[in-house]
Computed example of a mutant assay.
Amino acid sequence: MARAVAELRSWPALAVSDTRRGLTFAVRGTEILRLTGHDEVQVRLTAPAIDRLQPYLRECDQVQACQDRAWVAVHVDATPDLELLLALASVAIKEHVA
């Protein structure tokens, strides 16, 4: 997870905050990433983006739906999971700056 945090901190579109609940990343004042555990990150993709990606997300064991339909949880256990997280973070940024 340290590698993910280091990579995300370097992205100029993201602002990082250290809250009581852990690290969060925001774009234009909207929280889009939450570190919720030592191997889990929640990503705010938006409901329309999740609907578009659903055929792919459904097949991915590392991604789980959250109660809030705009968010998914990503379990990061290995390098491919990190790459998935970074790709989803990129989608989240795009969804919130358009």
Rank of each mutant, 00 (worst) to 15 (best):
M1G: 04
M1N: 01
M1A: 03
M1T: 06
R3D: 08
A4V: 06
A4Q: 02
A6W: 10
E7A: 14
E7Y: 12
L8I: 03
L8Y: 01
L8G: 03
R9G: 12
R9A: 08
R9V: 15
S10W: 11
P12F: 15
P12K: 13
P12W: 14
A13Y: 10
A13V: 15
L14E: 03
A15E: 09
V16K: 14
V16R: 13
V16Y: 12
S17Y: 14
S17A: 15
D18M: 08
D18Y: 09
D18N: 13
T19P: 07
R20Y: 10
R21E: 15
G22W: 12
L23K: 05
L23A: 09
T24Q: 12
F25T: 07
F25D: 01
A26F: 10
R28C: 08
R28D: 06
R28F: 09
I32W: 00
L35G: 06
L35Q: 08
T36R: 06
G37F: 03
H38S: 07
H38E: 10
H38V: 10
D39C: 02
E40P: 04
V41Q: 00
V41C: 03
Q42N: 09
Q42P: 08
Q42F: 14
V43I: 11
L45E: 12
L45P: 02
T46R: 04
A47V: 15
A47C: 14
P48C: 10
P48Y: 14
A49D: 09
A49Y: 10
A49Q: 10
I50A: 14
D51G: 11
R52W: 08
R52T: 10
L53W: 15
P55I: 06
P55G: 06
Y56E: 10
L57R: 07
R58N: 05
R58Y: 05
E59N: 13
E59W: 05
C60V: 07
C60L: 06
V63Q: 03
V63F: 03
Q64D: 06
Q64R: 14
A65F: 12
C66P: 02
R69Y: 07
W71V: 10
A73K: 08
V74D: 00
V74P: 00
V76A: 01
V76T: 05
A78D: 01
A78R: 06
A78H: 04
T79G: 00
P80E: 00
D81T: 01
L82P: 02
E83V: 13
L84R: 03
L84V: 02
L84Y: 05
L85A: 04
L85G: 02
L85E: 05
L86D: 01
L86T: 07
A87D: 05
L88W: 12
L88D: 04
A89S: 03
A89C: 05
A89N: 04
S90G: 09
V91E: 02
V91W: 03
V91F: 05
A92S: 11
I93P: 02
K94T: 12
E95K: 13
H96Q: 11
H96N: 15
H96Y: 14
H96T: 12
V97F: 14
A98D: 15
